[in-house]
Amino acid sequence: KRYRAVYDYSAADEDEVSFQDGDTIVNVQQIDDGWMYGTVERTGDTGMLPANYVEAI
């Protein structure tokens, strides 16, 4: 699945990823209600991200 960031996010922990509004997130997997795991296409960084900061595309 592919998602697009709708807000900027700065990683708060080493297992999270930072991204900017408009970034595409690929290979996304749902972890639980609030978190997903995926790769930021622009940077190649992979990690956890907050589900409410992205939307499906």
Rank of each mutant, 00 (worst) to 15 (best):
A56Q: 12
G47I: 03
N52G: 12
E55F: 09
Y9N: 02
V26C: 10
I25H: 01
K1H: 10
D33Q: 10
N27V: 15
R4H: 06
N27Y: 08
D32L: 11
G22K: 05
R42E: 06
E14R: 10
D13V: 10
R42W: 04
V6S: 06
A56C: 11
E55V: 15
G38A: 05
D21N: 15
D8E: 10
K1D: 09
V6N: 08
Y53Q: 05
G38Q: 03
G44S: 05
T24P: 04
V54W: 02
E16K: 10
A5Y: 00
D23S: 01
Y37K: 09
L49F: 15
Q20E: 09
P50Q: 06
G34S: 14
V40R: 00
S18A: 05
D13Q: 13
D21Y: 15
D21M: 15
E14S: 12
Q30S: 11
I25Y: 00
L49V: 10
T39K: 08
F19C: 03
G47M: 02
V28R: 03
E16Q: 14
L49E: 01
T46W: 08
T46P: 03
I25D: 00
G22C: 05
I25W: 02
S18R: 03
F19N: 01
Y3M: 07
Q30D: 09
T24I: 15
V54M: 06
S18L: 01
E16T: 07
E14M: 11
T39N: 03
M48Q: 06
D33C: 13
A11L: 03
V26N: 07
A12Q: 15
F19P: 01
V26T: 10
R42C: 05
D45C: 14
A12S: 11
D15M: 13
D8I: 06
A11T: 05
A56N: 08
V28M: 06
W35M: 06
G44R: 06
V40S: 01
M36K: 04
D13M: 13
R2A: 08
G34L: 14
E55L: 10
V6H: 07
T43S: 07
R2D: 06
Y7S: 13
M36D: 01
Q29F: 14
D13P: 03
M36A: 06
Q30P: 10
T43E: 02
A56F: 12
E14G: 11
M48Y: 14
I31Y: 09
E41R: 05
A11M: 04
Y9C: 04
R4S: 05
V54D: 01
A56E: 15
E41T: 07
M36H: 05
D45H: 12
V17H: 00
D8Q: 10
A12F: 09
T24D: 07
N52R: 14
A56W: 11
R42S: 06
N27C: 13
D23E: 04
S18W: 03
M48G: 04
Q20H: 11
R4W: 06
A51N: 06
D13S: 15
G47N: 01
T46V: 09
G34N: 15
D21K: 15
D8N: 12
E16G: 10
G22W: 04
P50S: 05
D23W: 07
D45E: 14
D8K: 10
D8F: 08
V28T: 07
G38P: 02
G34D: 15
V28N: 03
V17Y: 00
R4M: 08
A51H: 06
A5L: 00
Q29L: 13
Y9P: 00
L49Q: 01
S18T: 08
D13K: 15
V17I: 10
N27A: 09
M36E: 01
R4P: 00
I57Q: 08
N27L: 13
G22M: 04
T43H: 02
T39R: 07
T39V: 07
E41H: 06
N52L: 11
G34V: 14
D45V: 10
T43K: 03
D15Q: 13
S10F: 13
Y3F: 10
V17C: 06
G38V: 03
G44V: 02
D32P: 06
Q20T: 10
D21V: 15
T46D: 04
